[in-house]
Every structure is written in C-alpha cells, then in structure tokens.
C-alpha cells in the first residue's frame, strides 16, 4: 500500500475513534447532567459504588507513588539548585511541578491502570457474554446504565485524588527539605504556600477532570468494541491502557500549552 494511503487510512481511523469517544462522552454527560432534570431517574447508588472503586480504594497507591514522586522531584531539583546555591527553591519547584503537572499525571496513570483497564474488562466481558445485548433488549441504554455512573464517579473522584496526590507529593518533597536542605517543616510549608498561586491548583484540577473524561471514554469504548472471545477482552484491556496513557499525555501537552500561552506575564 502506498505510504500516503497508509497515513490517510490511519488518520481517518483515529478521527473516527476520537469521534466515537466524543459521542460516548456526550451521551454520558447528557445522562448525568441533563436527564435528571427531564424526570429520568439516575441511580446514584451505582455512581457511589463506582466512586468507591475508582477513588477511595486508589488512595493507598496514589499516596505512595505521589510521595515518592515528590521525593524524587526534590532530589532532582536539589542536584541542580545546589550548584547554584539556591537550595531554598526546592520547595517551590516541588510544589509547582506537583500541582500543575505530576499530581494530575501520576494520578491519571494510576487510575488508568486500576480503573480504565477495569472498565474495558468489565464492559468487554459483558459484550462477550451478550449482556450488553440483554441490556438493550430490556430497553436499558448501555451508555446510561454502564457509562454514566463511571463518568460521574470519575469526574468526582479524579480531582479529589489529584488534590491528595499534590499533598502527598509536597509531603515527599518536604521530607527531603527537612532532612537535607535545611528547612524546618514550618518553613518548608511556608515556602510551598508562597510559591503557589490559586491558578496553579486550578490548572491541575482542570487537567484532572479532562483526564477523567478521557480515561472513562477510552476504557468504555474499548469495552464496547471488544470482539468475540475471552482473548479479545485481554486485548481490549491492553488497548484501553495504552490508548488512555497516550491520549492523556497528548491532552496534557495541549492544556499545558494553552495555560502557558495564556499565562499572565
């Protein structure tokens, strides 16, 4: 096949994929934000169940990873800052990097591994077992029944987890700061608060909400497009993780660029 045709074909299939993600997301958003006002009942118990699975049970691993990332950031920053005699800037560097970038990103990676893959596996298994067909014949819309609760749970829990991740990252940086950079816990906290402005935290939370949408859409989409056979469920799960990580990074780049260009100078 000629190269141009291959590139064209790949571009079209990606565009179609993004189109499907958008359709799934708009369907879920309608079910969560609009349908309740039209008298269509939403079963919040399913969302709560998902919120527990997505958010609460992820706290230990998010805490540990964020703590380590904060510590690593401090070590790396200190390596360079020490040469410049600016070790006191460690606190600000860690705080900014965590809230604007690594908090949302590391949380997204953990949630992709735990929940994005689980969404694909759950819906994929249901597809293979004809359960999705069964839902449709019972006049239960799969997007309303399966995707909407996940969407609501993710949209609620990702910003919460990200905030927690930011705190744990700062704590990790603080451990280094107190032990090796001459801070007390009080001065480290003060330096952190001085370095941060409200916009930094806001940027991180906007990103985390966007990541939540991407992870839910990709996980569910991969589940719905699972082929026949249990092997296909495995493939969908892998695809959900790989595509989610890719799209989250792309989205991160887009948002970071937008925030950079619109930053007050």
């Amino acid at each position: 096949m000629p190269l141009a045709e291959q590139i064209g074909g790949a571009t079209l299939s990606w565009l179609a994929y993004v189109g499907n993600l958008t359709r799934l997301t708009s369907g879920a958003a309608r079910a969560v934000f609009i349908d309740p006002f039209r008298g269509r009942r939403v079963k919040w118990s399913r969302s709560m169940h998902q919120a527990l699975a997505v958010g609460v049970t992820a706290i230990p691993v998010v805490s540990l990873i964020s703590f380590f990332v904060g510590l690593i950031l401090a070590l790396q920053a200190a390596y360079e800052l020490r040469r410049l005699g600016a070790l006191h800037l460690v606190a600000g560097t860690v705080a900014l990097s965590m809230t604007r970038e690594l908090g949302p990103l590391m949380t997204a990676v953990v949630v992709i591994g735990r929940s994005g893959s689980a969404f694909a596996a759950e819906i994929g298994t249901m597809k293979v077992n004809e359960e999705i067909d069964a839902l449709e014949t019972m006049a239960l819309e799969p997007v309303h029944f399966l995707v909407a609760p996940k969407f609501a749970a993710m949209l609620l829990m990702m910003p919460c987890l990200t905030t927690w991740s930011d705190l744990m990252g700062v704590f990790g940086g603080g451990v280094f700061g107190v032990m090796s950079a001459g801070f007390t816990s009080h001065t480290y906290l003060e330096a952190t608060i001085d370095a941060l402005v409200r916009r930094d935290i806001f940027i991180g939370l906007v990103k985390s909400a966007m990541f939540a949408i991407v992870i839910t859409a990709v996980g569910c989409q991969e589940g719905f497009t699972t082929g026949l056979g249990s092997e296909e469920v495995g493939k969908s799960t892998t695809a959900a993780v790989v595509k989610s990580i890719f799209l989250v990074i792309v989205m991160d780049l887009v948002f970071t660029s937008i925030f950079y260009l619109t930053a007050p100078r």
Binding site: E122, N129, A134
Partner: peptide, 20 residues
Amino acid sequence: RDELRKRMGMSFQSGALFGS
C-alpha cells in the same frame, strides 16, 4: 422501540445474566 421492548422478553443462548 424502547417502549415496545418493555413488552418483549428475550432469553439469550448463553443466558446473558449479569455476572455481577
């Protein structure tokens, strides 16, 4: 269609019961 589907029942080959 959904309104009509509520008046129909379908038993799938595999049963298609919700495993969870």
